[in-house]
Structures are given as structure tokens and as C-alpha cells.
Nucleic acid binder design. Structure first.
Lengths: 256, 256
DNA sequence: AACGGTTCTCGATAATGTCGAATATGCTCC
DNA sequence: GGAGCATATTCGACATTATCGAGAACCGTT
């Protein structure tokens, strides 16, 4: 791990948390001398990864990230394939759908279909949710035991009163997830919101993403038809990616 | 400029262009030994900025970029303020609107409102357009002479037959842009598409973004009402940002 | 099963980033 | 409007740190 790059990434990460930071503040967070931080920030700035906030003398994330991220989304084969299937899923179920991938101890939403009732809803692509508090996350963890082990070794943060924070309880759920190829979550991330997720696998049979439908907890549990549509969607996407058999198999423990 | 960070940024940039690259390919592009590139890529990977493509042994951009970019958009004050005004602008004019900011020699779209006729249109947030081939870009250049000087010193790439590639011609247009506080573009970026843009300034009076309406070239020129609505929109956004007078003044040459 | 082309590991070298002190800049309070 | 303070920024000597070549391991292919 190259030190300078590690530090640069930490700078981006800090700015991700705090939005606007001065050199001194950053130096405080990273526990480095201000002059060192200044050099890093200036290097990032030259590439547009960081920008000076208009007016002030603090720094913020830069516009180059938006361009990179846009290309990232375009690069994702799963996403391109999944889009038409999830749109259809949203139409059939009348619910909003998400496609999520693992990002350390979070799930990042790489595609979002709004529920088709025409109500005003924010676009969720790009937001992240702790893995342990989402159906998407439970699916990804269940099929990636190494990540699960790592996560369960740490303290689990509670988001609502119903977030599962007990390692043993979560591990039990993960086992069930694999059995049913389906994970659920009720009020665990956001009060009043619940979801069901299923795995998406690629040619190699590895689970690389998960699809979910989100519904108001008042409509819980979902009808059997919804679950079937959801499973069918995941199977179709996986098939398009060249996956031979669905549901997929759990990836071996040390495979990374 | 820290070498390691510069190289890391170049790696990201290369992956932005090529989508998928192996270590050797990257090494070729950057003209570095493969082992050096490997170290850089591995460091980026640890932070999720780069990821191994599923299946293959090549690398691609990573999911962390999506999260960073999402925060970047949230951080942008202009964008938050502009959104309601551009939505209204789209409604009144029946056209799609864009909010753009400068990213080196390109304009990056930081917000996009689809035209409200209900037709299927792709979301343009995050795409980039060469500054010299867009109305948005001409506005940004006109108010940022240092950037204009730099750009005009180089060769201008042609996107359509109508792209302005002559430095003198462009410089003349930029002068007019400041006079009218308005830039136009007809078929210069995409055939059949034309746009008009106006500047958005912040508290300090500096132009930090531009708003535009985009229309089919068949509807060109826009009615006077559209131009008024556009100007009004930019003035409203600028006022919300604490800008005292609109149209804004050109930023002095060496001010960066 | 053997080959060619990869990615990846390791360690010595010297190039490189680091960090303290000094300077410049900009904000705040009087 | 001016003085004072806090912050950003520059600079250069030093030693930590990244670099790069050689070789091992790996993968896909013939």
C-alpha cells in the first residue's frame, strides 16, 4: 500500500464525511502536519478530484469525481443488463426497485427505479446503506462469507430501533438467506420502510449484486407474486450475464 | 505535485477512457514499469476507487467513486439552489435544462431537467462536453479569461461539422457572450441539438456555473420569452447565492 | 500437459515525499 | 479601516518511502 495514495484516499474520504474542510482541520483528522496535507490536497486539486469551495479557503470534493462515477456506472455490465428487467419489475409490482453492490461495509445503490405511482421520489442511485441493515446487504454478505466474518467481528451500528446489531442473530439470518436465496428487512434501515432482496450472479457463478423491492412497512408482508417476480428478475439478469444456474452457490471462504 | 498521487490520478483517468485495462496495458499507457503500476492500482483498489472486473483479471473504476460523486453533488450549493429554478424553467419553456460547471477543458453537467413532454430521455447529469462546443462552456470561458487563454492556445477538436475550431472566431464570440451575458450554440456539439446558456454567479460575483436550455435545432431560434425565462432563472439562482448584481463581471486574468 | 503472456512478490537503491520553519494571505474584531 | 490572529502556502534538508528489475506464481490457450 503506497502511503501517499493511501493518504490521498483518506483525504477524499474525510471530505466525503465533512463536506467542507480546511487544511488544518484535515491535518487534525488525519493526524498529519498541515504542510503534508497541503501537498496532498494540491495534487488532488490539479486533477479535479478536490476543489476549493467557492469563496472560502476550505476544500471540498471535486467535479472529476462526478465524471469518473458516471463512467463507472457505464462500465458496469450488471447495471446495463439489469435496467430493463428492474424497470419491468417496478412496473409489475408497483414498487420501487434497487440494484446494489458491496462497498466495504455498505451497500451502494447502482441503480434505482422509482415506484411507478408518479409520486415525487428522490433518485437513490449512489446512496449507501450499511450492509447489516438492508436486505441487499444481507444477500451480499450471505454469499460472501469472508466479508461477513470481518463485519461480524466488529460492533454493528443501529440505525433504527429494529436494526439487527447482534452478531449471532445476523449470522443465523445469513444462513437462512442462502437457503431461501432471499433476504428480508423490516424497518431496519429506515422506519416505515421494508425490503426483500435476491442475489444476482455472473458467469463465474459469483454473486456480484443484489436486486430488491422496497415497500412501505404498512404493506408488509409482500404478496407471493412479488417474491416470484423478484426471483424471476434476478434469474433473468443472472442468465444474461452468463450464469448457468440460479440460485447461485456461496463463494468459498478465502476467495477474494 | 506528489508523484504517486499524480500517477494514481492518471490511472483513474486512463480507466475512465478505456473502461477495462490490465496492468500491462496501463503500464504501456502511463509508460511505467508494470510493477510500479501494480502497486498504484492495488492501493486504489483497497479504497474501492478501482476494482477488478468480475471474472477477468483486468481492472476498472471502483464503486467508491459513485459514493464520492454522490456526496460531491450534495455538497454543491449552486446545485441545491438551482434545482427548483431550473425545474420551473423546464416547465415554462417545455425544454430540457442543464446546469454546468467547468472541468478543465470540458463542461460537466451537474444537474439536468428532462423536457417535460414525457418522452424517454436519458439522464445527463455527469456527462461532459468540450467547453468550446457548448453554450454552457462558452459562458464559463467568457467569464474566465485565464482558462480561455489556455484553451485557445491549443488545437480545438471538432465534434460536428459546425463545431467552432478557429481560435480567433471563438475569441470573438466570447467577447459577445460577455456583452449579452448569453451564449448560443447551434449543432456544434451534437447535430440537431442547439442550446442557449447564461452565467450563474456566487456571493463574490464570480461565475461558478451556467444554466442552459437545450432544443432541437429545428426549433431554433428560441422565442424571446425563452431567453427572458432563462435570464430570470440565472438571476434568481445567483441572487439566492448572495450575488448582488447580475449580469456578473468578468473575473480578472490572473485570479485563480 | 506445456507454453506464452499475464499478474504479482520481494528487496536494494536512490529518488521522492515528508515535515518544520518561515512567509503570505485572508478573516475577525476592535 | 486597521491591527492581530489564524489559517493557507512556500521552501529546502533529511530520511523515509516509493520505485523498478528480476524472478515466482498464475491463468488461459494451444
Amino acid at each position: 500500500m503506497i502511503q501517499a495514495i493511501d493518504r490521498a484516499a483518506r483525504v477524499l474520504s474525510s471530505l466525503q464525511g465533512a463536506r467542507h474542510l480546511g487544511i488544518t482541520e484535515l491535518a487534525g483528522i488525519l493526524d498529519l502536519p498541515p504542510s503534508t496535507v497541503h501537498g496532498i490536497v494540491k495534487s488532488l486539486q490539479q486533477h479535479g478530484l478536490v476543489a476549493k469551495e467557492p469563496g472560502g479557503q476550505r476544500y471540498m470534493l471535486g467535479p472529476a469525481l462526478l465524471k469518473l462515477s458516471n463512467v463507472y456506472l457505464d462500465t458496469l455490465d450488471v447495471r446495463a443488463r439489469a435496467m430493463r428487467w428492474t424497470r419491468e419489475l417496478a412496473r409489475r409490482t408497483g414498487l420501487s426497485t434497487r440494484l446494489g453492490a458491496e462497498l466495504f461495509d455498505e451497500v451502494i445503490i447502482i441503480h434505482h427505479n422509482r415506484r411507478p405511482d408518479g409520486s415525487q421520489q428522490m433518485l437513490e442511485t449512489g446512496i449507501t446503506i450499511p450492509v447489516h441493515a438492508s436486505a441487499l446487504g444481507k444477500v451480499l454478505l450471505a454469499y460472501h462469507p469472508t466479508a461477513a466474518d470481518e463485519l461480524l467481528a466488529r460492533e454493528l451500528r443501529s440505525l433504527t430501533g429494529d436494526t439487527i446489531t447482534d452478531a449471532a442473530a445476523l449470522r443465523l439470518q445469513l444462513a437462512q438467506v442462502v437457503e431461501r436465496a432471499l433476504a428480508v428487512e423490516v424497518d431496519e434501515a429506515v422506519l416505515g420502510e421494508s425490503s426483500v432482496a435476491v442475489p444476482v450472479a455472473d458467469r463465474s457463478g459469483a454473486v456480484i449484486a443484489a436486486v430488491s423491492v422496497v415497500m412501505p412497512s404498512s404493506e408488509w408482508p409482500p404478496e407471493a407474486g412479488v417474491l416470484n417476480d423478484l426471483r424471476e428478475t434476478a434469474r433473468n439478469i443472472s442468465r444474461e450475464l452468463g450464469c448457468a444456474t440460479w440460485p447461485p452457490a456461496v463463494r468459498p471462504r478465502d476467495d477474494d
